[in-house]
Design a protein around this nucleic acid. Structure first.
Lengths: 230, 230
DNA sequence: CGCATCGCATTTGCATACACAATCGCTCGA
DNA sequence: TCGAGCGATTGTGTATGCAAATGCGATGCG
């Protein structure tokens, strides 16, 4: 097959082909390029990535293990189709896990980690003013991951990141709504205060509320833009 | 290869070969038949299961996605090698997730679910008296899974089960220690009381303590039977 | 005209073949 | 004697081929 390239001028063909395909598919699902419910034909994907079916299959299996795609035996795979109920369940789960993380983090974070978190939070102020959604999204992610890290429980942090990534496909558009950006930052502010006071329980409750606010916001968005069958 | 059997008298060759291999390997890792750190040679496994490398590879990828095995690129796979620190992190994570589950469950469970939980708990009394470890282990699992279910959040329940299964490989022997069986049931008792009173926060704190007690018990076990390099 | 059944096409699941990377052992040199 | 360089071997990563199963369409029957 089109395997004739030995040159690496593309610069992105390091690593395993199956991993690259997996990452690419993950991105495409998360960004919505591959809509929920879309059929995933192995040969078709193989052609698209200029590979054979073997690495495509391995990528699909991994994605299925992560829950991003559903594989029905001998009937091919589809991008995991989420009901609104399921999405809300995922949001609640993320909210609870985040709440756990911030409680542990409040009790365990080092001064260095605390200052890093404050720095991230401060950086977001001008970005909110400018209404830069993408930049805030990135910073928001860093903020939450800094909290995961500060739990000093890398397994928990991995779980949190995994669940959060899985939700990403639906979280994407939520921040674009009106004043949600400002309110998100305000909520971060109150969480930071609780952390500063060393009150993990308070930080936990506020984080849970913060995540559920985001869920409510997304829920309204889904109701408004309700499509046919998804 | 030895593919000549069309007869299904064996009775266990339904479903996908890769799935059967995955399940078999999961069991072997969970039961310790495959020790942590053991190398997983694809051809060797293929021979052992009477299959080719393809389904074995797919099984390994899925296990890697679940965290049970580690796959280093072009260097093969090994059964995930856990440090004591990592195991404790996993225990803490399970404890926190269980605490979340029982809090939600306390607020949401139906009378039917509550009575089912009570029934399971009552069933364990004579089993503890008899010191039947395996039976208690099974009932214990059902008890916890009934709580997951009662959260009425199937995604959270799935996550809880997944993390719990991942820990199973190391939890196995923990209950065999002395009076841990009796104490485990007593702790369940206090959790049940909090649930009965509708106090989710209390149930949550007690569940966390319950799980961390189990972790401590296992920790002692690990210290006692410390092997060479794991 | 509607429904069931048979046959075909498509696609997955598995086997096999091949290429390259990593490791191990050897030899050679200091 | 020890270390470095180099080749052989082992095993992973990928491609391709083949068989079985599923879904769909056509055809025949009621």
């Amino acid at each position: 097959m089109a395997n004739g390239f030995e040159t690496e001028d593309d610069g992105d063909d390091r690593g395993l082909l199956s991993d690259r395909i997996r990452n690419a598919l993950t991105d495409e699902i998360a960004t919505g390029t591959l809509a929920a419910g879309a059929a995933l034909d192995e040969q078709q994907l193989a052609d698209r990535f200029g590979a054979s079916r073997t690495p495509v299959r391995e990528a699909l299996r991994q994605l299925a293990a992560g829950g991003l795609v559903e594989l029905r035996a001998r009937r091919g795979g589809v991008v995991a189709r989420m009901t609104p109920e399921r999405i809300m369940e995922m949001f609640e789960t993320v909210a609870e896990i985040e709440a756990v993380c911030v409680r542990l983090a409040a009790y365990r974070m080092t001064p260095l980690e605390r200052s890093h978190l404050i720095e991230l939070h401060d950086l977001s102020e001008p970005i909110v003013e400018a209404g830069n959604f993408d930049a805030y999204d990135s910073l928001n992610r860093q903020f939450h991951e800094a909290i995961y890290h500060a739990t000093h429980n890398s397994f928990l942090a991995e779980q949190a990141i995994a669940v959060r990534n899985r939700l990403n496909a639906f979280r994407r558009t939520q921040l674009r709504q009106g004043e949600r950006l400002r309110r998100s930052r305000d909520e971060h502010e109150t969480i930071m205060q609780a952390i500063a006071e060393g009150d993990g329980e308070m930080a936990s409750r506020r984080m849970r509320a913060h995540m559920l606010n985001a869920a409510t916001s997304l829920s309204r968005f889904i109701e408004t833009n309700k499509p046919g069958g998804v």
